[in-house]
Computed example of a mutant assay.
Amino acid sequence: MELEDYDAAFAFTEHIPEMKWTPTLIRDVVKAYGDAEPTQRVTVIGKPTDVTQRKNVDRWPKNAHGAVGEIWYDLNIDGFVSDLTATFVILDVDDGLDIALNDIHVM
């Protein structure tokens, strides 16, 4: 996402169908965060701010939907820590585990 290749970012994970994510919607959510600068982007590195950043993985026994856990990952925006959180579901599939984008929003 740092390169703003939202198509590639979208293709990198599975998706929860009910959430109706698209590469354009992911881009729009990133661009609408905080000051909503049209040039802002997700960055790998994030300098600390007053936000406590979250990068959590929780696991549990497989449920009826095949989920075995979730990931909450606070994104860095323009080189700074943010509270824009991407949440993912960890799915148990035949050949291992899949990560599915669930949501991106301020937590």
Rank of each mutant, 00 (worst) to 15 (best):
E2H: 01
E2W: 00
L3D: 08
D5F: 04
Y6I: 09
D7E: 04
A9D: 07
F10H: 05
F10R: 01
A11N: 15
F12P: 01
T13D: 05
E14K: 02
E14F: 03
E14Y: 05
H15R: 13
I16N: 09
M19E: 09
M19R: 15
M19C: 00
K20P: 00
K20W: 03
K20Y: 04
W21H: 01
P23H: 10
L25V: 05
L25K: 06
R27E: 02
V29A: 13
K31Q: 10
A32V: 09
A32Y: 07
A32E: 13
A32W: 00
Y33F: 15
D35M: 09
A36K: 06
P38G: 01
P38M: 10
P38N: 14
Q40G: 10
R41G: 01
R41E: 02
V42H: 14
V42D: 08
T43Y: 03
V44C: 01
K47N: 11
K47Q: 15
D50Q: 11
V51Q: 10
Q53L: 14
R54M: 06
R54D: 02
K55N: 12
D58H: 04
D58G: 04
D58T: 12
R59G: 15
W60S: 13
P61R: 13
K62R: 15
K62C: 13
H65V: 02
G66Y: 09
A67C: 01
G69E: 08
E70C: 12
I71F: 03
D74N: 12
L75M: 05
N76Y: 10
D78K: 09
G79T: 02
G79L: 06
G79N: 05
S82Q: 10
D83R: 14
D83L: 10
L84M: 08
T85F: 08
T85E: 04
T85K: 03
A86M: 05
F88M: 03
I90W: 07
D92G: 11
D94W: 08
G96L: 14
D98P: 00
D98K: 15
I99H: 05
A100W: 08
N102P: 07
D103Q: 09
D103H: 11
H105F: 04
H105N: 02
H105Y: 07
V106Q: 15
V106W: 09
M107Q: 14
